[in-house]
């Protein structure tokens, strides 16, 4: 079983015979699962994109004579709820993947659905926050606090993050449907889980750098 799963990428592509044996793979810390490895590298690359954005944010903040007080714009309670929703959804996803590994399908199904639900709730909350922010008079190129860079960066960075959440929700839903049809491997779900946790990870940094600092 394990052998077959390990060989899957080759088989799918070339239809190679089973003679590909274990020794063919050099012993390396990286060689255990190439899809997961690629996911990690993708995550590094995507993390660096957000890292660049946050570096830009910090830079622009340093060169601005003043920076708006975030607590006059955002509610700490609302922010806390958003964070809790996203962090919880990541926890649920981890529990779901763990359930899947142990073959507990009911547990998996329940927590997987809750994960997607949390993602949708987060998106709705973010949309509401944007609406609130726009209602205060913030636009990409101007805002009432006299630091147009702030609103521009805010929309760009949270927008990018929101886009990642949205893709995450879509991917999870799509994979969920495939799972119901029995057409998706456990590994794919695990990878989707990694992506979902990554979205959460980015939020941790955005929360601290944009809202709190």
């Amino acid at each position: 079983m394990e052998e077959i799963r390990r060989m899957e990428p080759i088989e799918g592509i070339h239809g190679l015979p089973e003679q590909v044996s274990a020794e063919q793979f050099a012993p390396s810390a990286f060689s255990r699962n190439r899809k997961k490895l690629m996911m990690w590298i993708f995550i590094i690359s995507d993390a660096l994109l957000f890292g660049s954005f946050l570096a830009v944010y910090t830079f622009e903040r340093f060169i601005s004579p003043s920076w708006p007080d975030r607590w006059k714009i955002f509610e700490p309670g609302y922010l806390a709820v958003m964070t809790v929703v996203l962090l919880s959804s990541s926890t649920f996803m981890a529990v779901a993947v763990e359930g899947l590994k142990q073959g507990k399908n009911r547990r998996f199904g329940f927590f997987y659905a809750v994960t997607i639900l949390c993602g949708i709730v987060f998106l709705a909350m973010q949309a509401h926050e944007w609406a609130h922010f726009i209602g205060l008079g913030a636009r990409l190129n101007t805002n009432p606090w006299g630091v147009p860079l702030f609103s521009g960066l805010f929309f760009m960075i949270t927008g990018f993050h929101g886009f990642h959440v949205l893709t995450g929700v879509l991917i999870l839903s799509f994979i969920g449907v495939l799972k119901l049809m029995g057409k998706v491997s456990d590994e794919t779900i695990e990878l989707a889980g990694m992506y979902w946790s990554f979205v959460d990870l980015v939020w941790v940094f955005i929360l601290a750098v944009i809202y709190l600092l």
Binding site: E23, A26, F30, S31, N33, M38, I41
Partner: peptide, 12 residues
């Protein structure tokens, strides 16, 4: 990167 790290043949 993935290929070099995970697809080297025996002894490589």
């Amino acid at each position: 990167v993935t290929t070099v790290l995970s697809m080297r043949t025996r002894g490589m």
